Amino acid sequence: MALVMVTGAASGLGYNTAQALADDGHDVVVHVRNESRLRDPDRWKGVVIGDLARVDEIHHVARQTSGFGRFDAVIHNAGVMGSPDVITVNVVAPYLLTAWMDKPGRLIYLSSSMHRGGSTDLRRLSAGGTYSDSKLWVTTLALALASRWSGTSSHAVDPGWVPTRMGGAGAPDDLTAGHETQVWLGTHDDVTPSSGGYWHHRQTQTSHPACEDEDFQAQLIKALESHTGVPLA
Protein backbone atom coordinates (compact mmCIF):
# COMPACT_ATOMS: atom_id res chain seq x y z
CA MET A 1 0.00 0.00 0.00
CA ALA A 2 1.41 3.37 -1.05
CA LEU A 3 0.87 6.90 0.25
CA VAL A 4 0.21 9.05 -2.82
CA MET A 5 -0.64 12.70 -3.32
CA VAL A 6 -2.53 13.90 -6.41
CA THR A 7 -2.77 17.61 -7.22
CA GLY A 8 -5.78 19.00 -9.05
CA ALA A 9 -7.96 16.11 -7.88
CA ALA A 10 -11.32 17.89 -7.85
CA SER A 11 -12.34 16.61 -11.28
CA GLY A 12 -11.13 15.16 -14.57
CA LEU A 13 -7.93 13.15 -14.73
CA GLY A 14 -6.87 14.10 -11.21
CA TYR A 15 -10.09 12.84 -9.69
CA ASN A 16 -10.02 9.68 -11.79
CA THR A 17 -6.41 9.04 -10.78
CA ALA A 18 -7.23 9.47 -7.09
CA GLN A 19 -10.27 7.20 -7.38
CA ALA A 20 -8.28 4.46 -9.10
CA LEU A 21 -5.55 4.63 -6.45
CA ALA A 22 -8.10 4.43 -3.64
CA ASP A 23 -9.87 1.54 -5.36
CA ASP A 24 -6.54 -0.32 -5.37
CA GLY A 25 -6.23 0.15 -1.61
CA HIS A 26 -3.69 2.97 -1.51
CA ASP A 27 -3.76 5.91 0.89
CA VAL A 28 -4.52 8.98 -1.20
CA VAL A 29 -4.06 12.62 -0.24
CA VAL A 30 -5.90 14.87 -2.66
CA HIS A 31 -5.28 18.51 -3.43
CA VAL A 32 -8.15 20.79 -4.46
CA ARG A 33 -8.22 24.52 -5.12
CA ASN A 34 -10.92 25.20 -2.54
CA GLU A 35 -13.09 23.19 -0.21
CA SER A 36 -16.22 23.59 -2.32
CA ARG A 37 -14.58 21.48 -5.06
CA LEU A 38 -13.87 18.51 -2.80
CA ARG A 39 -15.67 15.27 -3.73
CA ASP A 40 -16.02 12.09 -1.67
CA PRO A 41 -14.17 13.47 1.37
CA ASP A 42 -14.44 10.19 3.28
CA ARG A 43 -12.47 8.29 0.62
CA TRP A 44 -9.17 10.06 1.17
CA LYS A 45 -6.33 9.73 3.63
CA GLY A 46 -6.24 13.51 3.68
CA VAL A 47 -7.01 16.72 1.83
CA VAL A 48 -4.84 19.75 1.14
CA ILE A 49 -6.36 22.97 -0.12
CA GLY A 50 -4.84 25.86 -2.02
CA ASP A 51 -4.90 27.85 -5.25
CA LEU A 52 -1.82 26.89 -7.27
CA ALA A 53 -2.06 30.16 -9.19
CA ARG A 54 -0.88 31.98 -6.05
CA VAL A 55 2.62 31.50 -4.67
CA ASP A 56 1.56 32.06 -1.05
CA GLU A 57 -1.07 29.33 -1.38
CA ILE A 58 1.41 26.99 -3.08
CA HIS A 59 3.58 27.41 0.02
CA HIS A 60 0.53 26.71 2.19
CA VAL A 61 -0.14 23.50 0.24
CA ALA A 62 3.46 22.38 0.82
CA ARG A 63 3.15 23.10 4.56
CA GLN A 64 -0.08 21.08 4.77
CA THR A 65 1.63 18.05 3.24
CA SER A 66 4.28 17.93 5.96
CA GLY A 67 1.83 16.31 8.39
CA PHE A 68 1.56 13.17 6.26
CA GLY A 69 5.25 12.25 6.27
CA ARG A 70 7.18 11.16 3.20
CA PHE A 71 5.00 10.30 0.21
CA ASP A 72 5.69 7.22 -1.84
CA ALA A 73 4.57 9.16 -4.90
CA VAL A 74 3.43 12.67 -5.81
CA ILE A 75 1.44 13.07 -9.02
CA HIS A 76 1.57 16.65 -10.28
CA ASN A 77 -1.69 16.59 -12.22
CA ALA A 78 -3.06 20.13 -11.74
CA GLY A 79 -3.06 22.23 -14.88
CA VAL A 80 -4.82 24.98 -16.78
CA MET A 81 -5.08 25.92 -20.44
CA GLY A 82 -5.93 29.26 -21.99
CA SER A 83 -5.40 31.10 -18.72
CA PRO A 84 -3.02 33.92 -17.74
CA ASP A 85 -1.96 31.61 -14.89
CA VAL A 86 -0.76 28.85 -17.23
CA ILE A 87 2.93 29.20 -16.33
CA THR A 88 2.32 29.56 -12.60
CA VAL A 89 -0.02 26.57 -12.34
CA ASN A 90 1.64 24.26 -14.87
CA VAL A 91 5.32 24.95 -14.13
CA VAL A 92 5.98 27.18 -11.12
CA ALA A 93 3.61 25.30 -8.80
CA PRO A 94 5.04 21.82 -9.48
CA TYR A 95 8.56 23.24 -9.23
CA LEU A 96 7.88 24.93 -5.88
CA LEU A 97 6.05 21.93 -4.44
CA THR A 98 8.96 19.74 -5.51
CA ALA A 99 11.45 22.11 -3.88
CA TRP A 100 9.48 22.62 -0.66
CA MET A 101 8.12 19.12 0.03
CA ASP A 102 10.07 16.18 1.42
CA LYS A 103 11.51 14.18 -1.47
CA PRO A 104 9.04 11.39 -2.32
CA GLY A 105 9.93 7.99 -3.69
CA ARG A 106 8.41 8.86 -7.08
CA LEU A 107 7.53 12.05 -8.95
CA ILE A 108 5.09 12.08 -11.86
CA TYR A 109 4.40 15.23 -13.88
CA LEU A 110 1.55 15.61 -16.36
CA SER A 111 2.77 16.65 -19.79
CA SER A 112 1.06 16.85 -23.19
CA SER A 113 1.92 16.05 -26.79
CA MET A 114 1.63 19.81 -27.27
CA HIS A 115 4.94 20.20 -25.43
CA ARG A 116 6.64 19.52 -28.76
CA GLY A 117 5.46 22.95 -29.94
CA GLY A 118 6.86 24.75 -26.91
CA SER A 119 9.63 27.34 -26.88
CA THR A 120 13.08 26.99 -25.32
CA ASP A 121 13.19 30.77 -24.75
CA LEU A 122 13.11 30.82 -20.95
CA ARG A 123 12.62 34.59 -20.87
CA ARG A 124 8.99 33.65 -21.46
CA LEU A 125 8.79 32.41 -17.86
CA SER A 126 8.28 36.02 -16.86
CA ALA A 127 7.02 37.46 -20.13
CA GLY A 128 4.07 35.10 -20.45
CA GLY A 129 4.47 31.69 -22.03
CA THR A 130 1.92 29.45 -23.71
CA TYR A 131 0.40 26.14 -22.71
CA SER A 132 2.85 24.37 -25.04
CA ASP A 133 5.75 26.23 -23.40
CA SER A 134 4.54 25.18 -19.96
CA LYS A 135 4.38 21.51 -20.93
CA LEU A 136 7.82 21.61 -22.55
CA TRP A 137 9.28 23.09 -19.38
CA VAL A 138 7.55 20.78 -16.91
CA THR A 139 8.57 17.76 -19.01
CA THR A 140 12.15 19.01 -18.94
CA LEU A 141 11.91 19.44 -15.16
CA ALA A 142 10.70 15.84 -14.79
CA LEU A 143 13.57 14.44 -16.83
CA ALA A 144 16.12 16.71 -15.15
CA LEU A 145 15.14 15.44 -11.71
CA ALA A 146 15.57 11.84 -12.87
CA SER A 147 19.33 12.37 -12.98
CA ARG A 148 19.63 14.73 -10.02
CA TRP A 149 17.87 13.11 -7.06
CA SER A 150 19.18 9.77 -5.92
CA GLY A 151 16.43 7.64 -4.40
CA THR A 152 13.62 9.44 -6.24
CA SER A 153 12.37 8.39 -9.66
CA SER A 154 10.83 11.01 -11.93
CA HIS A 155 8.68 10.65 -15.03
CA ALA A 156 6.53 12.76 -17.37
CA VAL A 157 3.21 11.47 -18.73
CA ASP A 158 1.21 12.52 -21.77
CA PRO A 159 -2.31 11.37 -20.83
CA GLY A 160 -3.65 11.98 -24.32
CA TRP A 161 -6.36 14.32 -25.53
CA VAL A 162 -9.16 13.04 -23.34
CA PRO A 163 -12.76 14.24 -22.84
CA THR A 164 -12.39 16.21 -19.62
CA ARG A 165 -13.48 19.78 -18.98
CA MET A 166 -10.11 20.94 -20.32
CA GLY A 167 -10.01 18.52 -23.25
CA GLY A 168 -13.62 19.06 -24.29
CA ALA A 169 -16.42 16.58 -24.93
CA GLY A 170 -15.20 15.81 -28.44
CA ALA A 171 -11.67 14.77 -27.43
CA PRO A 172 -10.84 11.51 -29.23
CA ASP A 173 -8.61 9.71 -26.71
CA ASP A 174 -9.68 7.17 -24.09
CA LEU A 175 -10.59 8.73 -20.74
CA THR A 176 -9.71 5.65 -18.68
CA ALA A 177 -6.33 5.26 -20.37
CA GLY A 178 -5.75 8.90 -19.49
CA HIS A 179 -5.06 8.09 -15.83
CA GLU A 180 -3.84 4.48 -15.90
CA THR A 181 -0.20 5.32 -16.62
CA GLN A 182 0.05 7.68 -13.66
CA VAL A 183 -1.40 5.05 -11.32
CA TRP A 184 0.98 2.40 -12.68
CA LEU A 185 4.08 4.60 -12.43
CA GLY A 186 3.14 5.67 -8.92
CA THR A 187 2.61 2.22 -7.45
CA HIS A 188 4.38 -0.49 -9.47
CA ASP A 189 8.01 -1.58 -9.50
CA ASP A 190 8.07 -3.24 -12.94
CA VAL A 191 8.75 0.02 -14.79
CA THR A 192 11.46 0.30 -17.46
CA PRO A 193 13.09 2.78 -17.51
CA SER A 194 12.78 3.12 -13.75
CA SER A 195 13.23 6.89 -14.05
CA GLY A 196 13.42 9.57 -16.71
CA GLY A 197 10.69 8.29 -19.01
CA TYR A 198 8.28 10.29 -21.14
CA TRP A 199 5.18 8.07 -21.26
CA HIS A 200 1.93 7.75 -23.19
CA HIS A 201 -0.42 4.87 -22.31
CA ARG A 202 2.33 2.89 -20.53
CA GLN A 203 4.70 3.15 -23.50
CA THR A 204 7.73 5.42 -23.64
CA GLN A 205 7.69 8.04 -26.37
CA THR A 206 10.25 10.44 -27.80
CA SER A 207 9.98 13.87 -26.22
CA HIS A 208 11.13 17.22 -27.57
CA PRO A 209 14.95 17.05 -27.88
CA ALA A 210 15.37 19.90 -25.39
CA CYS A 211 13.79 17.84 -22.61
CA GLU A 212 16.76 15.47 -22.49
CA ASP A 213 19.41 18.10 -23.18
CA GLU A 214 21.46 18.48 -19.99
CA ASP A 215 22.39 22.08 -20.79
CA PHE A 216 18.75 23.07 -21.27
CA GLN A 217 17.77 21.18 -18.11
CA ALA A 218 20.34 23.18 -16.15
CA GLN A 219 19.19 26.44 -17.75
CA LEU A 220 15.56 25.69 -16.85
CA ILE A 221 16.35 24.94 -13.22
CA LYS A 222 18.49 28.07 -12.97
CA ALA A 223 15.68 30.12 -14.52
CA LEU A 224 13.09 28.67 -12.13
CA GLU A 225 15.35 29.32 -9.15
CA SER A 226 15.82 32.92 -10.30
CA HIS A 227 12.11 33.40 -11.10
CA THR A 228 10.90 32.06 -7.75
CA GLY A 229 13.82 32.83 -5.45
CA VAL A 230 13.61 29.21 -4.25
CA PRO A 231 16.57 26.89 -4.90
CA LEU A 232 16.10 23.26 -5.84
CA ALA A 233 17.76 21.16 -3.15
Rank of each mutant, 00 (worst) to 15 (best):
40 D>W: 04
208 H>V: 02
84 P>F: 09
91 V>P: 00
193 P>M: 15
180 E>N: 04
9 A>L: 05
170 G>Y: 05
56 D>F: 00
42 D>P: 00
206 T>W: 06
154 S>K: 03
149 W>H: 09
59 H>S: 12
91 V>Y: 03
193 P>S: 15
103 K>T: 15
123 R>T: 14
200 H>M: 13
167 G>N: 12
70 R>E: 14
102 D>M: 05
66 S>E: 15
106 R>P: 03
63 R>D: 15
93 A>E: 05
181 T>V: 12
59 H>I: 08
190 D>P: 00
45 K>Q: 12
155 H>D: 14
8 G>Y: 06
175 L>I: 15
224 L>I: 04
81 M>S: 12
110 L>K: 03
105 G>Q: 03
159 P>S: 09
100 W>S: 08
168 G>H: 10
73 A>P: 05
4 V>Q: 02
70 R>C: 07
57 E>C: 03
114 M>R: 08
13 L>Y: 10
3 L>E: 11
108 I>P: 02
136 L>M: 05
51 D>Q: 10
130 T>L: 05
111 S>P: 02
12 G>I: 04
19 Q>L: 13
174 D>A: 10
224 L>H: 03
136 L>S: 02
86 V>T: 14
132 S>A: 14
92 V>I: 14
232 L>F: 05
65 T>M: 11
118 G>C: 07
145 L>N: 03
26 H>F: 13
102 D>L: 07
5 M>A: 15
33 R>Q: 09
62 A>I: 06
164 T>A: 12
133 D>Y: 07
164 T>C: 10
129 G>L: 06
5 M>F: 08
80 V>F: 06
171 A>D: 12
5 M>K: 03
68 F>T: 10
158 D>V: 07
